[in-house]
Amino acid sequence: MTATVTVEVGLGDRAYDILIGPGLIARSGAEIARRLPGVRTAIVTDRNVAAAHLDSLTEGLAAGGIESVPIVLAPGEKTKSFDALQEVVDGVLSARLERGDAVVALGGGVIGDLAGFAAGIVRRGMNFVQMPTSLLAQVDSSVGGKTGINSSRGKNLVGVFHQPRVVLADTGVLDTLPEREFRAGYAEVAKYGLIDRPEFFAWLEKNWREVFAGGAARTEAIAQSCRAKAEVVARDEFETGDRALLNLGHTFGHALEAATGYDSARLVHGEGVAIGMALAHRFSARLNLASPDDAARVEAHLAAVDLPWRMADIAGPLPDAERLLGYIAQDKKVSRGALTFILTRGIGQSFIARDVPASEVLSFLRENHPG
């Protein structure tokens, strides 16, 4: 049995732990009660995760003396909506939970973002616990306090920063993930190496098969990813500075998700990030910021783990380059109309590029558009 690893997110009196390892659902009641004694909880989850893990979590909470009420939603990206937010808010209020009680997110990034947003606004802010059940959520969305829902205008445009009190990343649940979902989460793991940890990216190139297989290598990859994100969040909680580096691949990726109507049959978030990271490296090479060899290395690794890495890998037609540029211009990373991208000078040398000319982006999109 792999030991539990603890990573701290250092935010002063709002600091919290990320616990990583197997068996944490069973220990959830004890871990939460130690931090939030006497708390009652609402468990927000989706039908797929509920079928696999809700009973175990209910039992784990009860073992620690914690009452819970479930709020079970439809699965998929389209659940990050105003309608689902209303359903969660109504469920929390109808359960008569108080401000000192907690909302527990049991699921992937969609559930974590939605439940966290609800926790941040109900009764002007309730306690929040993240229990991520996907690799993507364990290494990215569950850490750092970003919450929100999608709008018809774009992804994650409505939300708040609301930090959890603890993150319980049970690595055992990853064994139940569909292979496609695990691969999609791996894109976010690779991202941390590409941002500023070239030695981690090299380690992944050698050890990705062991990460996929499980055990100590998987726990190590998750812990390294969480340490990388925790360090950035501690420096820049509200993304006014270098936390924006965590968006490597996301500006292109979010545009592609919007362009496919958030249809998970065509593209899930991690796949969008994978294509976005490849495009960011290829765009950097086009601007003579980095070597084409680095872009080729990124593409080769993504291809090796069977992730999509070009727009042509997305099933079905895409809007033209002008429409894609429109989605990019609507992205949150835009400031006063100027296009901001995370670009790179090489593997592990990402930086924030402001005032990127829209004409360059449009030309690049035309060159790489499958149509």
Rank of each mutant, 00 (worst) to 15 (best):
T4H: 12
T6F: 03
V9S: 01
G12V: 10
D13I: 13
R14A: 14
L19E: 11
G23T: 02
R27K: 15
S28F: 08
I32A: 01
R34W: 04
G38K: 13
A42M: 03
A50S: 13
H53P: 04
D55H: 11
L61H: 05
G65T: 13
S68V: 12
P70I: 14
I71F: 10
L73D: 10
P75A: 15
E77N: 06
E77W: 02
T79D: 09
F82D: 05
D83F: 08
L85Q: 07
V88H: 09
V88K: 13
G91K: 09
G91R: 06
V92R: 05
R96E: 12
E98M: 10
E98Q: 15
A102M: 02
V104D: 02
G107T: 01
V110C: 08
G112M: 10
D113N: 14
D113C: 08
L114M: 12
G116C: 04
G116Y: 01
A118F: 02
G120C: 04
R123S: 00
M126I: 01
N127C: 03
V129A: 06
V129Y: 01
P132G: 01
T133W: 01
D140S: 07
S142W: 06
G145Q: 07
T147C: 14
G154T: 15
N156H: 04
G159A: 05
V166L: 12
D175P: 05
A187Y: 03
A190C: 13
I195T: 13
L204P: 00
N207G: 03
E210Y: 01
E210C: 04
F212G: 01
G214H: 05
A223Q: 04
A223M: 05
A228H: 12
E231Y: 00
D236N: 10
E239Q: 11
E239Y: 08
E239N: 07
G241I: 00
G241D: 11
L245S: 07
N247L: 13
G249Q: 06
E257K: 07
T260V: 15
D263Q: 12
S264D: 15
R266E: 10
G270K: 00
I275C: 03
G276E: 06
M277P: 00
L279D: 03
R282N: 12
S284L: 12
S284F: 11
A285H: 09
L289D: 02
D294K: 06
E299P: 02
A303S: 14
A304F: 04
V305N: 11
D306A: 15
R310A: 10
M311Y: 09
A312L: 01
D313Y: 06
I314H: 11
G316S: 06
L318F: 00
E322C: 00
I328G: 04
A329Y: 02
L339M: 15
T340L: 09
L343V: 14
R345T: 08
R345N: 11
G346N: 11
G346T: 05
I347V: 07
I352S: 08
D355F: 04
P357T: 11
L365G: 08
L365C: 02
